[in-house]
Design a protein around this nucleic acid. Structure first.
Lengths: 121, 121
DNA sequence: CGCTTAGTTCAAGGATCATTGAACATTAGA
DNA sequence: TCTAATGTTCAATGATCCTTGAACTAAGCG
C-alpha cells in the first residue's frame, strides 16, 4: 500500500469537518497556496513560511483527517495534494468558492507561487 | 438605533471566522433551516429542536459575531435573518454552496420547513 | 556506518469551545 | 400589578484547539 496514512473515504467526508478544518488561517492559507500552485503536489517544507515543522505537521494531519488533502509519502518527504475531485463530488462548487475567497484575502499578503523544483521528486 | 446588538460591518467579516462559525453541526443546521425557510426571519425559539435555550443563545451569538446572521429584537423575541447579500458581496458563491451542501446532508435527517405563524408577531 | 533531510510523536500549557442550570431582564397581556 | 413568554448572563465543567521544544523515525547519501 502506497497509502498508509489514514484518509477518509470520499463518502465519509463530512461537511462540518471540512468547514472546521478550513476555519483556521494557517490551513486556509495552505489550501490557497496549494490551489494557486496549479494543483501540483507540494511538500510540507514548502509551507514553512506559515509555521514551524511541528505546527505544520499538526495542520497537515487536520486537513488530511477532514478529507481536504491527500498525503503521499515520497522518500523522506510527503507530497500534498488537494482532494479536489472528491470534494467536488461531495460538495459541488464549494471548494472553488473557498479557494476564490481565500486567495482574495491573502492577495493583500502578496502570495506568489512557490518556485518549482525543476527536476522532479 | 434598532440595532444595538453588535454586528460586524460587511467589510469586517472575515473568511476564517465565517468558516469557523459554520463548522459546527448545530449552527450549520440553523443556517440550513433559515435558508430553507425562504429567507423569512425566524426566532430563536423555532430552533429549539436543535438544543436548549442557553445553547441556542450561544450559537446565535457566534453566528452574529461572525457576520453570518443578523439579529433584530422584536418584542421579547429576536428575529434572525441570513446576511445573504453581505456574504455574497464578500465571498461570492460561497453561501449558496454551503447551503446546498448543508441541506443535502440534513436531507437524511428529514428537515421540513418550520410552520408559519399564520398571523404575525 | 555516520550524517543530513524531512517529518512525526509526545507531553505540557494556555486558550477557546460547547453545554448546563440557576438567576436575571425585558416585553406583552390579563 | 401579576404573570407568562422569550431570551440573556454567569459560573462551572470537560473537551478540544494550537503552539512549543525535545526526542524520535525513516530514507537517502558518502
Amino acid at each position: 500500500m502506497t497509502n498508509y496514512l489514514p484518509h477518509p473515504a470520499t463518502e465519509d467526508i463530512t461537511f462540518p469537518a471540512v468547514l472546521t478544518a478550513l476555519g483556521d488561517e494557517t490551513r486556509l492559507a495552505m489550501i490557497a497556496i496549494l490551489a494557486s500552485n496549479s494543483e501540483r503536489a507540494m511538500t510540507c517544507g514548502q509551507f514553512l513560511q506559515l509555521g514551524s515543522k511541528t505546527a505544520l505537521s499538526y495542520h497537515v494531519a487536520k486537513l488530511r483527517e477532514a478529507g481536504v488533502i491527500r498525503v503521499r509519502p515520497d522518500g523522506t518527504k510527503r507530497l500534498l495534494t488537494l482532494r479536489r475531485e472528491d470534494l467536488e463530488k461531495r460538495f459541488p462548487g464549494f471548494l472553488d468558492s473557498v479557494v476564490a475567497s481565500a486567495m482574495a484575502k491573502s492577495a493583500s499578503g502578496d502570495q506568489e507561487a512557490v518556485p518549482e523544483s525543476t527536476g522532479e521528486a
